[in-house]
Amino acid sequence: MARVGGRNALIAWVVGIGCAATLGALAFLALPLLPASLTWVEDTARGPADGQVSEAPVEGEQGGTPTECDQLYGEALWASLRFSDGAILAPSTDAPTTTATALVDALQPQVQLTCSWNADAGTVTTTLATVATDAGAIAASALPGSGFACEAREERIRCTRTDGDLIETIESGGGLWVSTSESGWHPEGYTDRVAAQVWP
């Protein structure tokens, strides 16, 4: 094969090796995105099973009342809690953690789930229970005398009490009860985000 005039074999080799090294570096950098890319291609090729356009899940849109602690939180809040410094979760069916013991005795909430978080910043304990459908009205009349401020939230009642580093919330509506005690640790938007999971 005849050589083309003006070309240098050494320069061609150097350029070729440089190009190969660049491609290798780009491939190495792209490796972490390979699984996500393959999943995206597979999902795109398969398409929605029922012919409908699928939507990303929205916090609060789920099937039924939460039965596990991870279902009590949206994805973002769950990740935030889990990765907080020193965070340890202890799920149970313990009675609600609240200073409103007289209300608990009167309403006798049937505990479905209690999620207790202990972290370096403090503790957060939330109880999900079933109660009589008029529990919200009873709480609204009974709790202000114990330092709680109550307000209507759509078809439920939310009562909140703050005492230094302690924030207590009791929310009831539609036969469901959610009470939260935050001591020292106050995750952003915690009460609203949990309510969105229980009352979508």
Rank of each mutant, 00 (worst) to 15 (best):
M1A: 06
A2R: 01
A2D: 07
R3C: 07
V4P: 00
R7I: 05
V14F: 03
V15P: 05
G18T: 00
A20C: 04
T22R: 04
T22E: 00
T22P: 04
A25G: 02
L26Q: 04
L26W: 05
A27E: 00
F28G: 03
L29R: 03
L29V: 05
L29C: 05
A30H: 01
P32L: 03
L34W: 03
S37T: 13
S37D: 10
L38G: 08
W40G: 10
D43H: 13
G47I: 09
G47F: 05
G47R: 10
G47Q: 08
D50L: 15
D50N: 13
V53C: 03
A56R: 13
P57M: 01
P57A: 09
V58T: 10
V58C: 09
G64P: 06
C69H: 04
E75P: 06
A76S: 14
A76D: 15
A76Y: 10
A76R: 13
W78Q: 12
S80V: 11
S80G: 11
F83C: 04
S84R: 11
D85I: 07
L89P: 09
P91T: 07
S92A: 10
D94S: 11
D94I: 09
P96A: 06
P96R: 07
T98P: 00
A100C: 08
T101H: 11
L103W: 04
L103D: 00
D105A: 13
D105V: 11
A106C: 04
Q108I: 02
P109N: 03
Q110M: 03
L113G: 06
T114A: 08
C115M: 14
S116C: 11
S116Q: 13
A119S: 14
D120A: 13
G122S: 12
G122A: 11
T123D: 08
T123V: 14
T126I: 13
T126L: 09
T127S: 13
L128P: 03
A129Q: 06
A132M: 06
A132V: 01
A135D: 05
A139P: 02
A142Y: 09
L143F: 13
P144M: 10
A149S: 13
A152D: 11
E155V: 03
I157H: 01
R158D: 02
T160N: 15
T160E: 15
R161N: 12
E168L: 15
T169E: 13
G173R: 02
W177Y: 06
S179P: 04
T180Y: 10
S181F: 14
S183H: 15
G184K: 12
Y190M: 12
T191L: 09
R193Q: 12
V194W: 09
A196H: 01
V198L: 01
W199P: 03
P200W: 03
